[in-house]
Design a binder for these strands. Structure first.
Lengths: 191, 191
DNA sequence: TCATCAAACTAACAAGTGTTAGTTAAATGA
DNA sequence: TCATTTAACTAACACTTGTTAGTTTGATGA
């Protein structure tokens, strides 16, 4: 309710996200989490209501960030290729400031319970928007007439895996990475 | 030891792989696995020696397939771009006939215990070979002079995620998919 | 000074965990 | 026919799991 407890609660959530990234949601016990915080397991319940609740907070907030980002991109009046570049930036930005949470989003979403349907709905809408954008790009001849599903799959899986890769580059400039990645994804790698 | 029991054992391992794909290694109990096989948990131990052992069998065999495939590719005398296409095929082929196992390889490797170091060694060697191949391609001007790490990251994460995507396409021709994917990854998507 | 309160604690719970021991029933092969 | 083998079973184990209840401690502010 009040600011102090919010802060402590967020500390627990971000510690949890870090552990979830290392071992996965199911393999992390409340005792693991407590010990990483330097307290006892029962004390966690002064701040959070359940293990499930932690996972929900981590995943849903990121999923909603993506939805908001995607909506503002499709509403803008850039070219379709330009919009794809904006999607690359969206992923780089969100991932860069929540690497651990992205791991849970990618790997632990199936352990959501009440929120599973909601999460899947957001994900489906996101992918549908992405696919439509590629199809438009093909119809305006901005994009090669290959299978739009393969194009989307290839881009999206690369973007979803950024969480594995960004933390290894300590001196990361988000702009630079977005730029290089856009080139590789859109223009290919061959000369 | 004898052939009948080998068959039953493999049935357990492939059922386990399917469950591990759905929920992850830690969330699947021996009772879950037994019930999917239509028997009791204790009966599993007539065939396998531990839960760990199942995971090891799933992951290490695939990792060794990749190592063998990579070795024969780098030893061949194709162009570097041609070798990249062969790597795409290698991933498509291995994934197409063991989708479930690929999920464990990607997501549950950290739960290996005795074999963790061995697995990491295979993976590191694989990535080092991949990277060297791209660097050679750059130096012979087959490949654009972008960051070789970004190129490898982009290709490899797409290939590693194939297990999520292949089972959705029922009428899959491995040749076709390898071909389309190579085009997208190597030549890019823009006109 | 003293009531309040956030945030820790100890103790305990019921359920679920991987695994072992010992047994049984049906099929196999000499 | 009968000893062996395969593959299932029941029962139980020691331990771990998420979570609750009730209590203590130290800081805050009236």
């Amino acid at each position: 309710m009040n600011p102090k407890s919010e802060t402590r609660k967020e500390e627990i959530i971000s510690t949890a996200a870090k552990l979830f990234k290392e071992k996965g949601y199911s393999a992390v016990t409340m005792r693991d989490l407590a010990s990483a915080m330097g307290i006892k397991a029962a004390s966690l319940y002064n701040h959070i209501s359940s293990k499930q609740d932690i996972l929900k907070k981590i995943i849903i907030s990121i999923a909603e960030e993506f939805t908001a980002g995607m909506n503002s991109i499709i509403e803008s009046d850039s070219s379709n290729i330009e919009k794809l570049k904006q999607i690359v930036s969206l992923h780089v930005d969100i991932t860069a400031n929540n690497t651990n949470g992205m791991a849970s989003l990618n790997n632990d979403w199936m352990h959501l319970e009440e929120q599973l349907d909601y999460y899947l709905q957001l994900r489906n809408e996101y992918e549908a928007n992405f696919l439509r954008l590629i199809q438009k790009g093909i119809s305006t001849s901005e994009i090669k007439d290959n299978s739009p599903e393969i194009i989307m799959f290839s881009m999206l899986t690369t973007l979803r895996s950024l969480y594995l890769w960004i933390p290894k580059k300590e001196d990361l400039d988000a702009k630079d990475l977005s730029q290089s990645l856009s080139v590789v994804l859109i223009e290919g790698i061959n000369k």
